[in-house]
């Protein structure tokens, strides 16, 4: 091989190395594990989208009807929910706030922790950061995989979080699922809907999607602002970079 070709090759190598690293990093990110939590099986896609305000409003209603009895959102103020979900103070205080808290105060469940510990073995967790910690898909799947289990002290079990301490709070909506076990083992193969609830399976999935969506919003209310401002920041930076590039080109005429 002649020298020039070797030179060209090594330069080519240099020019390829950086893109290769960028690609490798890209692959790492693409292959990132979803928020993993304890539990078995494949997670279902929640389809949560915090830009869907109607879904957030429905999810909030579900949360305050079915969850707030036990679970707090201690980092979330009623007033912020009103602002972000396009609700009035009147609507929030009348339709969502059943605890008598003030409008500016955070969402705190009325259940005394000592009682909760007595009833469920442990205090129900605060759900402010549940989706940040476990992922929207996990919470969605969890809410769809409760089944009747006579062996459990609370009568319910869950395939996503086996031996969950929570009795299924949405049973009257989904109905009662039972487990179909694999022949010759205790492993759950699939869940069958034994007694339908008030909602059809499709309606129930939509309801839990809304609820998870609301919890995703609660995990990071700033996401709404992020998306709003982000586009403008990127456009501005693109303009700046373009100008800087033209300026560089102009000055470097001296060098080349």
């Amino acid at each position: 091989m002649t020298k020039p070709t070797l030179l060209t090759m090594s330069r080519l190598l240099m020019k390829r190395l950086l893109p290769a690293i960028v690609l490798a990093v890209g692959l790492l990110v693409a292959g990132q594990p979803a928020a993993r939590a304890e539990g078995e099986g494949q997670l279902m896609a929640s389809g949560a989208n915090v830009r869907d305000q109607a879904s957030l409003q429905r999810g909030a209603r579900l949360f305050f009807n079915y969850c707030v009895g036990c679970h707090s959102l201690k980092y979330m103020r009623y007033s912020r929910i009103a602002d972000d979900l396009g609700l009035t103070e009147q609507q929030v205080m009348h339709d969502l706030n059943f605890t008598g808290a003030k409008f500016q105060e955070p969402v705190i469940s009325h259940m005394p922790p000592e009682d909760a510990t007595k009833w469920f073995g442990k205090a129900p967790p605060d759900l402010s950061l549940e989706v940040s910690a476990k992922g929207a898909d996990w919470v969605y799947t969890y809410l769809n995989t409760f089944y009747l289990d006579p062996k459990s002290p609370i009568g319910w079990n869950n395939t996503t979080l086996p031996n969950a301490a929570m009795p299924f709070p949405l049973w009257e909506l989904q109905g009662e699922q039972v487990a179909v076990t694999k022949p010759g083992s205790d492993g759950v193969e699939k869940l069958d809907l034994a007694h339908p609830g008030k909602l059809t399976p499709a309606q129930y999935q939509q309801a839990t999607r809304d609820l998870v969506n609301f919890l995703a919003y609660v995990s990071e209310p700033a996401a709404m602002q992020r998306h709003r401002y982000g586009v403008w920041v990127l456009l501005f930076l693109a303009l700046f970079t373009m100008l800087a590039y033209l300026l560089k080109k102009e000055y470097w005429k001296d060098v080349h």
Binding site: R226, H227, Y229, G230, V233, L234, L237, A238, F240, T241, M242, A244, Y245, L247, K248, Y251, W252, D254, V255
Partner: peptide, 23 residues
């Protein structure tokens, strides 16, 4: 010469950083 050149680098870098920060 290198201040204006680095400014271009800064612009590209901030584009990437802002994308991560906001999205």
């Amino acid at each position: 010469y290198y201040t204006v050149k680095d400014l271009v680098g800064v612009g590209f870098f901030l584009l990437i950083a802002a994308f991560i920060i906001f999205f």
